[in-house]
Amino acid sequence: MSRCPPGDPRRAPARPGPARWAVGLLAALSGAASGALPAVPQPVWAGWAVAAGASGGQATAGSAPAAPTGVSSACGTTLLGSLSVSWTAVPGATSYTVFESTTSATSGFSLAAAGLTGTTWSSTFLAGSYWFYVVALIGSNWQSGPSTVTGPRQIALLSLLCS
């Protein structure tokens, strides 16, 4: 019998890769018994060997946004015992959070307001203490560090005058 030249449709199909070899022979054998060659299924397997401590891939976390700038506090102009805090808008910020302290410029801060979308916030009925403020922003769900601390504002205990 003469060999079929390459490209001849009578030529036997290319030999399958090693993974398909056994499956291909099995399929050919069963096909011969029924008179027709079924489609040769490709082997399917799951799992692989991995070195100890292997990784499934690499992901990277974003960094916290920079803290707001231009933060300052001011005495209220229409109401005794009131203060307002303002800051410069930050592009991409989702919201802002204000913290206050009557202890010092470096400690004792607690949450005063959250979810602020503007660039000012006011507080009223403050008396008898010094007030420090910092502002943080929420960007892409991660909160920035605190801003610089505003200079203290004092509210007189009896007169409620702000200075």
Binding site: V44, W45, A46, G47, A54, G56, Q58, A61
Partner: peptide
């Protein structure tokens, strides 16, 4: 917050579904 700006090694996958010897 300790995870800010960090790089992560994802937990290894259990397996894949795959075929070999594509024609």
């Amino acid at each position: 917050s300790a995870c800010e700006g960090k790089y992560f090694s994802m937990p290894a996958l259990i397996g894949v579904t795959a075929t070999g010897g594509a024609a």
